[in-house]
Amino acid sequence: MTNYLYQGDLPDDLDLGDTVAIDCETMGLHPHRDRLCVVQLSSGDGNAHLVQIPKGQTEAPNLCRLLEDAKVLKLFHYGRFDIAAMLNAFGATTAPVYCTKIASRLVRTYTDRHGLAKLLQELLSVDISKQQQSSDWGADKLSKAQIDYAASDVLHLHKLRDKLNEMLIREGRMDVAQACYDFLPTRAKLDLLGWPDTDIFAHA
């Protein structure tokens, strides 16, 4: 396994295939207030590619091309936040997408624990550390611990999707899951437009 770190954008010649796992690190949990700091990606081959985003940067052409490529499926865990963070930073709408958290909520109805660490432990027998989750991602230089943590969030999403898909098919919920994934970019836009906590489908 190798972790690659880039500044500002993905390399011009990098091909991550037709299914890419993506995660983001930010300065906090409010996209309008807390800037995007790192975007990490993996093709599922055991390697991770991290893009460090300098403060004030508003363009990342190669990354945005990938986010908007209709032929590339983007895998997330809690994609709602990551999609909104990248849309706010670059103006790029990510699609098509798959979210392991949504899949888990739809099919693992026997528990209310849908965090990535719990999913990986239960379905893949993989343990990851969340110790660096709240560290300073806006630092000029990332520590090895931060890089390793960021990589761990994307290295297993391909296999996790396969396991969750088996469960979704078994329970007959693949179609409704796909409909949720298709709506996810719009849900992220609603968050940015001012409806993060409002169910617009509710009667009152």
Score class of each variant (00 low, 15 high):
Lys163Gln: 09
Leu63Met: 00
Thr198Tyr: 13
Val97Cys: 07
Asp34Pro: 08
Leu29Cys: 09
Ala179Phe: 09
Leu41Asp: 07
Thr26Tyr: 05
Val39Asp: 08
Arg65Val: 02
Glu122Arg: 10
Gly194His: 08
Asp23Tyr: 00
Asn165Met: 08
Ala70Glu: 11
Arg80Ser: 02
Ser129His: 00
Gln121Ser: 04
Lys130Pro: 02
Leu164Ala: 06
Val38Asp: 09
Phe81Trp: 04
His32Tyr: 01
Arg33Gly: 01
Ile83Arg: 03
Asn88Ser: 14
Leu106Arg: 08
Asp162His: 06
Gly194Lys: 01
Leu124Thr: 03
Gly8Trp: 00
Val97Ile: 01
Ser152Cys: 08
Asp12Ser: 00
Ala60Val: 06
Tyr4Thr: 03
Lys159Ile: 06
Asp148Tyr: 02
Met1Lys: 14
Leu14Ile: 12
Tyr6Glu: 02
Ala188Phe: 04
Ala139Ile: 09
Leu116Trp: 06
Ile169Gln: 04
Val154Glu: 07
Pro11Val: 04
Ile22Thr: 11
Asp175Arg: 11
Ser104Glu: 12
Ala139Asn: 09
Glu122His: 14
Ile147Leu: 14
Asp34Met: 04
Leu123Ala: 14
Ala89Asp: 03
Pro196Asp: 12
Ile128Gly: 08
Ala188Leu: 02
Asp153Thr: 05
Lys55Glu: 04
Gln40Leu: 03
Thr58Leu: 05
Val72Cys: 07
His156Met: 02
Lys130Gly: 09
Asp112Asn: 15
Val39Glu: 09
His77Arg: 04
Tyr6Pro: 09
Asp45Glu: 14
Asp162Met: 04
Gly56Ser: 02
Val51Met: 09
Tyr181Phe: 15
Cys64Pro: 03
Val39Cys: 12
Gly194Ile: 09
Asp175Leu: 08
Ala150Thr: 11
Thr93Lys: 13
Glu59Pro: 03
Val39Gly: 03
Trp137Leu: 01
Ser42Arg: 03
Gly79Thr: 02
Lys74Asp: 08
Met1Gly: 13
Asp136Ile: 07
Leu164Cys: 11
Gly79Trp: 12
Ser43Arg: 15
Asp18Ala: 04
Arg173Phe: 03
His32Trp: 12
Ala70Phe: 00
Arg161Val: 03
Cys99Gly: 11
Leu50Ser: 10
Val39Lys: 14
Cys37Asp: 06
Ala48Phe: 00
Asp112Leu: 03
Val107Thr: 09
Ala70His: 02
Asp45Asn: 15
Arg35Ala: 10
Asp15Gly: 00
Asp162Val: 05
Glu166Ala: 10
Leu190Phe: 10
Ile128Val: 15
Leu87Ile: 01
Ser134Tyr: 06
Leu5Tyr: 00
